[in-house]
Simulated assay, not measured.
Amino acid sequence: MQSTLKRLHLRPVIALDAARLFEIYGDPATNTFNPAGPYPDIHHAKMVLARWISHWELNGFGNWAISLRDTPEKTLGFGGLSISHFADISINNLGYRFATEAWGNGLATEFSQYAIKHGFDHIKLAEISAVVRKNHLVSQKVLTKAGLRYVREILDVQNAPPSLLFTLTREEWNNKSTKITNAR
C-alpha cells in the first residue's frame, strides 16, 4: 500500500531501506532527545527493520518510508503506527523521525495528520498515542497540531526520566473532524 499526500509519498518499509534507516537513526542530531542514543551500526538497523516488516505482516499496518512526492526515490524519514509496549501499557504508537535536511518544513505535521486519519478511518483503531521527551518541544507542538493531547508521564526508557504520553481517541477525532467540516 503506497500513499501520496499533498507533499509526501509513503510506502511500507522494505529490507533495502536498511542503509537509509541507519543514516537517519544513526545520526546523533536526530537523536538529540533520545536517551537511547543513535543506532550503533547497520546490523542494529537491519534488526529494527526486520521487526517493522514483521509488524506489517502480522498487523496489516506499520512504518512507512517517507519521501517527497516529487522525489519518491529519496527517503527523508520513517514513521507510522505500531503497537508498542511499555512498562505498564500497550499503545497504538504514532512515531516518526526525519533526516535533518527535512526539518522545519512542516513535514512531520503533515505526516502525523495523515497517519492519524489513516489509523482511524482505515485501520479502525480506537485510540492513537505518541510518546515524546519532556524537552522535545517541537515534537510536542507537532502532536498537538495533529490533535493529540497530553495525558500523563510514562516510563519508556529504562534508567531515564519519564516521557510524556499524548493521546487521541477516535471519538475525539470524529468530533474534531465534524466541527471542521461544519465550519466550512
Rank of each mutant, 00 (worst) to 15 (best):
I91L: 09
L8A: 01
K179G: 05
L10R: 07
I24P: 07
H136G: 12
K141V: 07
Q140C: 10
H85K: 15
Q158N: 11
K46T: 10
R170D: 10
W64I: 06
G119C: 11
G119Q: 07
M1D: 00
A99Y: 04
S177Q: 15
I116T: 07
K179S: 15
T4H: 07
E127S: 08
I91A: 05
W56N: 06
T32F: 13
I180F: 11
F166Q: 02
I24Q: 05
A102K: 01
Q2C: 10
P40R: 14
T178Q: 15
A45N: 06
A108Y: 02
R170W: 09
V48A: 08
R69L: 05
V13F: 05
N59H: 15
L164R: 06
A18G: 09
Y39K: 09
V131Q: 01
L68Y: 03
L168G: 03
V132K: 07
G147F: 08
I154M: 01
V132I: 12
G37V: 00
N59L: 08
K6D: 05
D88L: 01
L5T: 03
H122A: 12
A15N: 06
K179E: 12
N175K: 09
G95M: 04
W173D: 04
F111A: 00
H85C: 11
E23Q: 14
A15V: 09
T181M: 11
T4A: 10
A29F: 05
I53A: 04
E110K: 03
S3G: 01
I14M: 02
F22R: 03
H43Q: 12
T178V: 08
P38R: 14
H118A: 08
E23P: 08
G37Y: 11
S54N: 13
N31R: 14
S177I: 04
A50L: 12
D70R: 06
Q113T: 08
N93Q: 10
N135K: 15
F22M: 11
K179T: 14
S112E: 04
F78E: 06
M1Y: 04
L137F: 13
F120R: 07
L58T: 11
N135I: 12
A108H: 00
G60Q: 04
S3H: 15
L10T: 07
F86S: 02
T30V: 05
T144Q: 15
A115D: 00
N159L: 14
T75H: 00
Y150N: 13
E23L: 10
R149W: 08
R184H: 09
V132F: 09
A15L: 13
L164G: 01
I128A: 00
A102Y: 01
Q2E: 15
N175Q: 13
R170H: 12
Y25A: 09
K145D: 05
A183N: 12
S82V: 11
L68W: 00
L5Y: 01
G62Q: 03
P161L: 06
K6A: 03
N159Y: 13
L76N: 03
F166I: 12
E171P: 06
P38H: 13
R97F: 02
K6L: 02
N135C: 08
R152H: 06
H43E: 12
Q158E: 12
A99K: 08
H55V: 01
L5G: 03
T178P: 06
E172T: 06
Y96Q: 08
G26Q: 10
W103G: 09
I154C: 01
S129N: 09
